[in-house]
Design a protein around this nucleic acid. Structure first.
Lengths: 231, 231
DNA sequence: GCAAAAGTGTTTGTGATACACCCATGC
DNA sequence: GCATGGGTGTATCACAAACACTTTTGC
């Protein structure tokens, strides 16, 4: 024992936003807490940090455990440390957030852990300060969506402009002029149009696009910063 | 013991940026670490979180201990938790940052704790990951200065436009066109011109201004957001 | 009267907004 | 041939950037 001070539990909580392209809505991953206090109630996915585990590694482990996913967007958001936040003991929780693409495979993986995807407008009651965490995440999503290309984390690799538009409308909760949106997005020059069309939602079909990560990083290096600000 | 998991030390580190209006430069508050490992080396101000102390309260305590200040800008930035970051044990450190106005009183208070103010361009070697923390703080400062009125935290209550301009030039490390700067700042309508002049740096004298917090909050409520973006 | 800093206006260009029609296709 | 969603262009306005001179006053 090197330091003469109290020690605490350190936990990770992870906000996982998922977007379902076909349903066109944003969802949040929740699971039924297994330990007391609050066992059985809905909570963000989370867990305790292990002895020799970096915080980020802990977050990656938690995410992998519940979703099977590796290597997706995962970033630290904030740390919650009110002394009274957890009646089970002094737990300081580091909040991470992740953005993933929802598809049927993902939904099954998740179900196997007693977890489920909830519409953001219809969340159940959440344990402790997890609602605050969720609100913080929504703000962050809105803030970042105008400034960075996080939106693309939520869409499949190939997507159409109408899909991207509807995602942004979902994030901001308002409608966006499609002509201006196209102009602005294409002007950034980080999208590549493919020779494929997606005909699942119209007879004419919409061109599929891909996000060009290389071009984005070039731009960012040179001091650019994307601004998808809407209205 | 309610949870069957390892516990850790949780510490606060606090980045304190101070601006000296007369010297016209940004400084960072450092102190000589008192405990092993690294005793005697320069470090951010910090301390361990107490048993029943909220994280924010801990940060307030640390800040007060070293500067005597209370009620100034203080915000959580990020949490550092690499397993190997502190050779003295598993310490997860929550980083806060604060912005204060430097004057002669402040400088004396601080000296009494073996602490000192350092020019940002001439920092000594810092302990552990404290240089990363400092860089994160500088980025945050630049990001926020364009978006929120944090700049005013660094200036005395009454200040002149040339002083404000030089502060921004210091933050961004480049020169700013004074005519455009005045126009932009005054257009936001959050500054009130007083009937006083500061003649300390010119014969003509420069009008003193105050930040109108009320107007700023009104604007923010209505969805505005200040944009002092420069160049 | 001159040096030194404070203060002021105009022009130009770029990018945001608002807005309406044609296109391609499956049925 | 028509209904459905996909795609395109233009005019206007507001704001950012570039840029040079006048004002005040202590010495």
């Amino acid at each position: 024992m090197t330091y003469q001070h109290p020690t605490m539990w350190v936990s990770i909580d992870c906000l996982v936003f998922g977007y379902d392209v076909s349903e066109e809505n944003l969802k949040l991953l929740l699971f039924q807490r297994k330990v007391e206090p609050f066992a059985g109630q809905w909570s963000l996915i989370g867990g305790f940090v292990n002895e020799n585990e970096d915080l980020l590694a802990g977050a990656q482990r938690v995410l992998k455990t519940f979703t099977g996913l590796d290597g997706v967007f995962l970033e630290q958001l904030s740390t919650f440390g009110k002394a009274s936040r957890d009646p089970g003991g002094r737990v300081v929780s580091v909040l991470y957030w992740s953005l993933i693409k929802l598809d049927s495979i993902q939904k099954e993986v998740v179900n196997s852990h007693g977890a489920g995807w909830f519409d953001l407008e219809q969340l159940p009651e959440l344990v402790m300060d997890h609602l605050d965490m969720t609100q913080l995440g929504m703000e962050q999503l809105r803030r970042n969506a105008t400034t960075t290309p996080i939106g693309f984390e939520l869409l499949p690799e190939k997507f159409t402009l109408p899909q991207l538009l509807r995602l942004y409308e979902g994030i901001y909760g308002k409608s966006i002029d499609d002509r201006n949106f196209r102009k602005k997005i294409l002007a950034t020059d980080v999208l590549v149009r493919l020779d494929e069309k997606d005909k699942s939602s119209s007879k004419k079909g919409a061109y599929k696009y891909m996000f060009d990560e290389r071009k984005y990083h070039e731009l960012k290096q040179r001091g650019y910063h994307l601004d998808f600000s809407i209205k």
